[in-house]
Simulated scan of single mutants.
Amino acid sequence: MSKTILITGASRGFGKLWADAFLQRGDKVIATARNLKDLQDLSDKYGQALLPLQLDVNDRAAVFAAVQKAQQHTGRIDVLINNAGYGLFGAVEETTEQEARAQMETNFFGLLWASQAVLPIMRAQGGGHIIQVSSILGLVTLPVLGLYNASKFAVEGLSETLATEVKQFGIHVTMIEPNGFTTDWAGASAASTTPMEEYAGLRKAFSDSATPDSFGNPAATTPAILKLVDSAQPPLRLLLGKVALPFAKSVYEARLAEWDQWQEVAHAAHG
């Protein structure tokens, strides 16, 4: 049975790849982008099956208006995929107020606005599925990505809470947590702070640590996303790629060991 799927940030990367896959199999897609020219090829290919909408997710009123227009056009929204976002590269100390706020506005608040906007529609229709494109860096961290890490940690906390709140309405929430993939996330889509010499060595070590095996093939994610959207009982979290789970396990094992080491102090602090 075909679905109606709203995808934010569909101009490139995962968003555009998945939009194409949904359209190819016969779903209806509402795709948002800052520049509609980036969606012209999909419009030419799929015609009325695609509703392209210009949207800056940082504008809460515009997000609500776009979701309302999508619902009026299609009659329902079965799935929301919050994909809009970008990476900010730079040490925490290097990050300006404007850079920090812009990162949170898009990666966190834009996702929040879209989630809020779609909830009344999904409640009224008796169910739906909100898919948040988070990151493995919403569970663990890497240096020189502090604000990006923080934005995805915020997405994780928000979305886990949201899942408990909307389960009663038949609405599912899933966080997708990819490791690195060969999209342009670290290229044209990314932003960078003004570097400080004090962090030059750390930046080089971070850059040198990346190997070709660290990054997955974006096209390989499509079957996973189709399976997720079609699942009657989707998971709360879905890690994508070969690197994500081993990375998370190693970090969490270290966390547990440290918590155990300090348990006597923690217990005494209870009073």
Results as ranks from 00 to 15, higher is better:
107 N>F: 01
108 F>M: 07
108 F>V: 10
111 L>P: 05
113 W>K: 06
114 A>I: 00
115 S>F: 01
116 Q>P: 00
118 V>A: 07
121 I>F: 05
122 M>I: 01
122 M>S: 02
124 A>F: 06
124 A>K: 15
125 Q>V: 07
126 G>V: 00
127 G>N: 03
127 G>R: 09
127 G>I: 06
127 G>S: 03
128 G>Q: 03
128 G>F: 05
129 H>V: 12
129 H>M: 07
129 H>W: 03
132 Q>C: 14
133 V>S: 01
135 S>N: 08
136 I>Y: 05
137 L>K: 08
137 L>M: 11
138 G>E: 03
139 L>G: 00
140 V>N: 01
140 V>T: 12
141 T>M: 12
141 T>P: 05
144 V>M: 14
145 L>I: 14
146 G>T: 04
147 L>T: 11
149 N>K: 08
150 A>Q: 05
151 S>L: 09
152 K>S: 02
152 K>A: 04
153 F>M: 11
153 F>Y: 14
153 F>V: 09
154 A>F: 11
156 E>D: 10
157 G>N: 05
158 L>Y: 13
159 S>Q: 01
162 L>C: 08
164 T>I: 06
167 K>F: 15
167 K>L: 15
168 Q>D: 11
168 Q>F: 00
172 H>Q: 08
174 T>I: 15
177 E>N: 10
178 P>D: 06
178 P>C: 13
181 F>P: 03
182 T>C: 00
184 D>Q: 12
186 A>L: 12
188 A>M: 10
188 A>T: 12
189 S>L: 12
193 T>M: 07
196 M>C: 10
198 E>H: 09
199 Y>D: 09
199 Y>A: 06
204 K>V: 05
204 K>C: 05
205 A>Q: 14
205 A>W: 01
209 S>C: 14
210 A>K: 08
210 A>N: 09
211 T>W: 04
211 T>N: 06
212 P>V: 06
212 P>I: 14
212 P>D: 09
213 D>N: 01
214 S>H: 05
214 S>R: 12
215 F>Q: 04
217 N>C: 08
217 N>G: 12
218 P>D: 05
219 A>Q: 15
219 A>N: 14
222 T>L: 15
223 P>K: 14
223 P>R: 14
223 P>E: 15
224 A>W: 00
225 I>H: 03
225 I>A: 09
227 K>P: 01
229 V>N: 02
229 V>S: 02
230 D>L: 08
230 D>E: 15
231 S>L: 10
231 S>Y: 03
232 A>K: 15
233 Q>C: 11
234 P>H: 04
234 P>C: 11
236 L>Q: 11
237 R>F: 03
239 L>W: 04
239 L>H: 13
242 K>P: 10
243 V>G: 08
243 V>M: 14
246 P>D: 11
246 P>L: 13
247 F>D: 13
247 F>E: 10
247 F>L: 09
248 A>F: 10
248 A>P: 03
249 K>Y: 12
249 K>W: 12
249 K>S: 08
